[in-house]
């Protein structure tokens, strides 16, 4: 099993812990795991898109280290709203599919929720909120499967790595 699938599984387990009174620790870790599940899903896909071949693991790992959470959010914003940089507009093969728009929206929500879960001690999570985020992360995996290998999907992977540079 891959890291991203394991993280998604872990999120699902954590959000169900302590049946009657879930601990903030469990809910916060569930939210964090849900974000990192989608994060690692996408950087794995993007690094494999950039570096092909079964014996290139070290080079792919080097590529994964180049991703920036903020730049990935910018890429997701572009694809969510359809306001692509001019350098990418011809590369998507048509309108952005709804699955990809929804994936981008989910990624942005999860990123913010992860920040709150990990750092904002004034913020209290309910199981309901955490479960909503975990469910949406699970669906993000399905949405990615729907667009993986399409021109829009490929353009999104490139944007995740190079969003700022694409504005030049």
């Amino acid at each position: 099993m891959s890291l991203h699938k394991d993280l998604l599984d872990q999120a699902g387990h954590l959000v169900k812990r302590e049946r009657k009174r879930p601990k903030q620790a469990s809910l916060r870790r569930a939210v964090s795991a849900a974000y990192y599940a989608v994060f690692h899903l996408l950087i794995d896909a993007a690094s494999r898109f950039v570096v092909r071949g079964s014996n290139r693991a070290e080079l792919r790992y080097a590529v994964t280290r180049a991703f920036d959470h903020g730049e990935m959010k910018s890429a997701a914003n572009s694809f969510k709203g359809g306001t692509l940089p001019s350098t990418l507009q011809g590369a998507t093969g048509g309108p952005i599919p709804p699955e990809l728009r929804r994936l981008c929206e989910t990624f942005i929500e999860l990123q913010q929720a992860r920040h709150e879960a990990d750092y904002d001690l004034t913020r209290e999570f309910t199981r309901r909120e955490a479960q909503d985020l975990v469910t949406r992360a699970e669906r993000a995996f399905q949405d990615w499967t729907a667009v993986s290998g399409t021109p829009s999907g490929d353009a999104f992977l490139v944007a995740l790595l190079l969003r700022k540079k694409l504005d030049r």
């Binding site: 929500e109 913010q112 929720a113 309910t126 309901r128 909120e129």
Partner: peptide, 16 residues
Amino acid sequence: VQVYVRFRSESEHKGI
């Protein structure tokens, strides 16, 4: 603006 929409039940929200 970025818009973040979350859901709570009334009892959950009042508890917080």
